[in-house]
């Protein structure tokens, strides 16, 4: 890259905060080391070049005791440990039918993962044949490991491990598509995650709207029934106090139509219907 890029000799303007005289007292950090970052890290003995992050062994022993609450599992790996067979069954059983099933479908996300990490390992071409990739393949693909050699053979004809190249089989392309679908929902899930409040408020506003509109329609219905002269169930306050709905006093003086229900309240209407 050094040949492609301008030489590092061109000077970057100094940062405003780099000017002397802005020290802030004692700090808890060890003084910075000299040398390039790679030299510093390698000298400290913590370097581990090219580590592929395998999500299957994600939860390394870490000091997570400061977490306030347990962290929920990522939506796309809810049944991650179920392995290929279980994921496949999930696919077969219409997982998008309900919201609950939506979470379950993310199990397949693992499938996309393994695919991609293997892909990266081969394409990177920097000595990653070692652990991560093939373990990952073996672990999650199970019996399909050999079949999967095909598509990657395309990319790397010198691959000594796989069988000769074949066009991707039905299941491979199917699972690739499913991997894409799962990725798609994973990103939406993260977006909803980041918008927890917005999503919550949106849903509660929607529910409130339904609630309010229910009230509204109730009132409207009551009003229409009164116009028609049908006595609706009086409220409790009316039972004790004013007694009757005022519309019934004049026996239809103010109304075009006479009373439809001769006797009793709305409840009795239904009751009669049931009996009849």
């Amino acid at each position: 890259m050094a040949s492609n890029s301008p030489p590092p000799g061109n000077t970057r303007p100094i940062k405003p905060w780099d000017r002397p005289g802005t020290s802030s007292g004692p700090t808890p950090f060890k003084p910075p080391s000299n040398g390039s970052t790679s030299d510093v890290v390698e000298a400290s003995g913590t370097a581990k070049p090219g580590e592929i992050v395998n999500t299957a062994e994600r939860n390394v022993p870490a000091n997570t005791n400061t977490l306030a609450r347990p962290v929920p599992p990522r939506p796309w790996e809810q049944n991650r440990l179920g392995g290929y067979g279980m994921n496949y069954n999930t696919y077969g059983s219409g997982m998008y039918g309900s919201y609950g099933g939506y979470g379950g479908s993310y199990g397949g996300g693992l499938y996309g993962n393994s695919l991609y990490s293997g892909y990266g390992g081969l394409n990177g071409g920097s000595g990653m044949y070692g652990g991560g990739m093939y373990n990952g393949l073996g672990g999650s693909f199970g019996g399909y490991g050999m079949g999967m050699g095909g598509p990657y053979g395309d990319r790397d004809p010198n691959n000594p491990y796989g069988p000769p190249s074949q066009p991707p089989g039905f299941w491979v392309s199917f699972l690739r598509v499913m991997g894409g679908v799962v990725n798609f929902f994973g990103r939406i899930a993260i977006l909803i995650d980041q918008n927890t409040q917005a999503f919550h408020m949106f849903m509660s506003a929607l529910l409130q709207l339904f609630d309010r509109s229910g009230l509204l329609y109730g009132e409207l219905a009551r009003f229409v029934f009164r116009l028609l002269g049908i006595r609706t169930r009086p409220k409790k306050a009316h039972l004790a106090g004013s007694g009757e709905v005022p519309g019934n006093d004049g026996k239809g003086q103010r109304y075009i139509e006479g009373p439809k229900a001769n006797d009793g309240s709305w409840d009795n209407v239904w009751g009669n219907n049931v009996k009849a």
């Binding site: 890290v41 370097a47 070049p49 992050v53 994600r58 870490a62 990177g124 993260i190």
Partner: peptide, 30 residues
């Protein structure tokens, strides 16, 4: 000479221009 990347795979990686692969992976987040 180096940069950091943070990912949804729970890790942070340290890269340097003079190395072909990442220098280090920081994995403690859950």
């Amino acid at each position: 000479d180096s940069f950091l990347t943070a990912s949804w795979d729970d890790s942070v990686k340290l890269w340097s221009l003079d190395r072909p692969a990442s220098l280090r992976t920081f994995r403690e987040h859950a």
